[in-house]
């Protein structure tokens, strides 16, 4: 990333204004041209830094129920189990971690009933010991990477 791209990316991560020509606003703030901002976004996408440019939603506001699950998977089974878990549309994150509970996934469904149903199905299909940790309270859900 160039110095300018880092500066632009730091600013964009805060969110673009909901106004006409939003990149012009950002350009003025950074004392750059609007074209430069747009070109930087295309370049950052091409270079594989930006996965997606779009809205970040709070799906819980849409009635979606979510939970976090940790699994204790035998080393040789990780790939197989991970693939089963990932195959569910409601699974958005699935990570292998350095811990006795070594596979962690987040599951979202449109209702508590669906959430229970999917969890039960995953449990039956994988036959793996798992802990189910629904969130009680969200305090912060923003990622901000500061590039220097």
């Amino acid at each position: 990333m160039t110095k300018e791209e880092k500066m632009i990316l730091n600013e964009l991560q805060k969110g673009i204004p909901l106004e006409k020509r939003p990149f012009l606003k950002i350009a003025n703030k950074l004392c750059l041209s609007e074209e430069k901002i747009i070109r930087a976004i295309h370049s950052l996408k091409k270079k594989g830094y930006i996965r997606r440019f779009g809205a970040i939603l709070d799906v819980n506001q849409l009635g979606v129920k979510s939970t976090l699950v940790g699994m204790k998977v035998r080393g040789e089974d990780v790939e197989k189990i991970a693939n089963i878990v990932s195959s569910y549309e409601g699974v958005t994150h699935n990570y292998e971690r350095d811990h006795i509970y070594n596979l962690w996934f987040t599951l979202m469904e449109s209702s508590d009933e669906r959430l229970e149903k999917t969890l039960k199905e995953i449990k039956e299909r994988t036959k793996v010991e798992m802990i189910h940790l629904p969130s009680e309270k969200k305090h912060k859900t923003n990622v901000f990477f500061k590039f220097e």
Partner: peptide
């Protein structure tokens, strides 16, 4: 569109419109 986007932002459905990064490709 802008009116509706602002509404949904105020309701908390939309957190922001921003780039989502491949964080493993960054220096983090």
């Amino acid at each position: 569109l802008l009116k509706r986007l602002k509404n949904m932002k105020n309701q908390g459905v939309i957190k922001r419109i921003a780039p989502v990064l491949y964080h493993q490709n960054t220096e983090y």
